[in-house]
Design a binder for these strands. Structure first.
Length: 595
RNA sequence: GGCCCCAUCGUCUAGCCCGGUCCAGGACGCAAGGUUCUCAUCCUUGAAACCGGGGUUCGAAUCCCCGUGGGGUCACCA
């Protein structure tokens, strides 16, 4: 092991949107591999598309990664408030980053035993940064200058329209278009330099050779690409920014990246990168192309899925214009509806879904977070989409990945993203949580996505909140779903509404038999001490038994009285969460309402 | 269309590299029972797969070839 080379992996997102679940898996594997080998995991922001990149997106991606517990050793710095021990919590608890809604305000971090008060993720210990490609232009330009001088690259002054035409013509002739002009068509170096100096618009192209390229991939094995597959692709765009291909190759070299793990959609880029590396005399890193993550349609999972879902719902509802409450421009809506390729802005799409009471399929980490999934479950689940430890084991945490992840067990076949199974995993994880942990998670989630409910929960106090968490545990598959069985505790005694149908059925029927029973039971409960779940349950059962009734006969009137509905968590926990005073008040109110 | 990748229950997969222990194991989902004060949880049981065809071999889910199917990719996006 001492002689093993130091592994450096990297995740290199382009900040043009939210962190996609597939990207999260790539990052997770890069992280896990670095952890496993005692290497370094770095993050580089590939913001070379001036039109589409944004700092907000970059920050969002970093924040999502941190939330997942995928922390980087080098890269952009992010302040962190973390119940984190080393790189992953002892129970796989995630990092806490600054709240999105209240930046600068650290979230509470009451779980995880080895809490670090504050800290920073990222940094530049080896001095290989910046980790934003837009800030590395002189690095790329130096390489370009060198390549130009050595004839490895050339300036191309032809307008993009001309190229597009040629491409179209080739397509019409059913030919594969490859740009590789004969040497005679390329201007001599001094002319190139003169025209560049004169400020003429141009791109810099790689002068590809005609060699076949052989790539050794850790998951796919040997992959051969025929001669001439690599064409004279662009290295530097007309705006002076590097293309993806160029930036990746240069930065991976300069940053010492040894292992490139990425999605299989990049496989066809690899010969380009290898050809470039060879021309420049760079190392070729170890490649591992991981299988794709599919949606239900068996195609690569993408954000478009959300638009498709919404579009279908709109069509099914036969809506001609934006529904009431949706903040979308009518013209934009119509254009979107008629063009299946078109995508709505995230905000527009979400307001539309909200207005239609429609659940959009989650595709970005943010979506899953909002839906109430646990970060450690997401990591567990996406790890399974392409990797498994064997031996029928499929539940594991970050520590396990950090200790056991390997390239050899990455599968070759694309996996469908099965939300049902994710949900089941999440439900299991919630079910296995300590009451107080779940309570804390609930509070965190509410702070972000349901502040009003969060306040109500907090007002319960630690003890009752923990009790509520226990009650809700087997009834919630996500943190969001926990709000439903907790609903009775989220309204005041005065606000509680009684479901009329339920009241008719269990309280008013048979000349108010249920109501009468309720009043008698109330006397027992009023005298009950301690007012705790086991005692409450015992009292209810004894009361029913004493009258030769089934427990359900007395439970249901009580349930409707204190929760307003025939469906709720167990009565012992429900009443204990409410407390005796509140319970009595609700019973009185109910009796009055049904009198 | 060119190039490239892939192929085990409906889905995720173990097994494949190092052929026999596989009438193929696990999980989600599904179905049927059971426990329970509602809802849920939980427990038990069940149905459910080696894409097709050729080889190689005493023997193939496992090795080879062809076919078929699916996917990816063909930008001054990454």
């Amino acid at each position: 092991m001492a002689t093993a080379p130091h592994v450096i992996t990297r995740f290199a997102p382009s900040p043009t949107g939210h962190l996609h679940i597939g990207g999260a898996r790539t990052a997770l594997f890069c992280w896990a591999y670095a952890r496993r080998t005692g290497g370094t995991f770095l993050i580089r922001i590939e913001d070379t598309d001036q039109a589409r990149s944004s700092e907000a997106s970059a920050h969002g991606i970093l924040k999502d990664l941190a939330w997942l517990g995928i922390l980087w050793d080098e890269g952009p710095e992010l302040p962190l408030v973390a119940p984190v021990s080393d790189r992953c919590g002892p129970t796989g608890s995630p990092a806490q980053v600054f709240s999105k809604t209240s930046p600068g305000a650290p979230l509470l971090a009451q779980h995880g035993s080895e809490t670090r008060a504050t800290g920073t993720i990222g940094g530049n210990p080896r001095g290989v940064g910046s980790f934003y490609q837009s800030q590395r232009l002189d690095v790329y330009n130096a390489v370009i200058t060198d390549m130009l001088a050595r004839g490895l690259a050339y300036a191309d002054f032809s307008p993009p329209e001309k190229l597009a035409e040629a491409r179209k013509a080739a397509e019409a002739a059913k030919q594969t278009f490859r740009y590789h002009p004969p040497a005679a068509e390329i201007a001599p170096l001094d002319e190139q330099q003169r025209r560049i100096a004169a400020g003429e618009k141009h791109v810099i192209r790689f002068r590809a050779n005609e060699e076949p390229v052989r790539v050794t991939d850790e998951v796919l094995g040997e992959v051969a690409f025929g001669a001439g597959e690599v064409d004279d692709f662009v290295l530097r765009k007309a705006d002076g920014y590097p293309t993806y291909h160029f930036g990746v190759v240069v930065d991976d070299e300069k940053m010492g990246v040894t292992h490139v793990l990425r999605g299989q959609e990049h496989l066809m880029n690899t010969p380009r990168h290898v050809a470039l590396q060879q021309a420049l005399g760079y190392r070729t890193p170890v490649y591992a192309h991981m299988p794709l993550i599919f949606n239900d349609q068996g195609a690569k999972m993408s954000k478009r899925e959300r638009d498709q879902t919404a579009r279908k719902a709109v069509k099914d509802a036969k809506l001609a214009g934006p529904p009431a409450g949706a903040s979308i421009d009518a013209a934009a809506f119509t254009a979107w509806l008629g063009d299946t390729k078109r995508q709505l802005e995230t905000g527009e799409l979400e307001s539309l879904a909200a207005a239609m009471n429609l659940a959009l399929p989650e595709v970005s980490v943010d979506d899953f977070r909002k839906a109430g999934y646990l970060p450690e479950v997401i990591c567990n689940f996406i790890a399974l989409l392409g990797w498994n430890p064997g031996e029928n084991r499929e539940k594991f945490g970050m520590e396990f990945l950090a200790a056991n992840f390997d390239l050899a067990r990455i599968g070759k076949t694309s996996a469908r993203f099965d939300r049902k199974k994710l949900l089941s995993f999440n439900a299991d994880a919630i079910g296995a949580m300590q009451d107080t942990d779940l309570a804390a998670r609930l509070l965190e989630w509410c702070a972000e996505y349901a502040p009003a409910e969060g306040e109500r929960l907090r007002a319960l106090g630690a003890e009752r909140l923990a009790l509520l968490a226990r009650a809700v545990k087997p009834r919630a598959r996500t943190l969001k779903e926990a709000l439903r069985p907790a609903a009775f505790a989220l309204v005041s005694d005065e606000e509680l509404a009684f479901d009329p149908a339920a009241a008719d059925k269990v309280l008013k029927a048979n000349a108010g038999a249920g109501r009468a029973l309720l009043l008698d039971l109330a006397k027992v409960l009023a005298a009950l001490e301690p007012f705790e779940p086991p005692a409450i349950n015992a009292a209810i059962e004894a009361f029913a038994a004493g009258r030769s009734l089934k427990t359900g006969d007395v439970a249901q009137p009580l349930r409707v009285a204190v929760t307003g509905s025939t469906v709720s968590p167990g009565l012992g926990e429900t009443l204990a969460v409410l407390g005796k005073a509140s319970t009595m008040k609700r019973i009185e109110r109910c009796a009055a309402a049904c009198g």
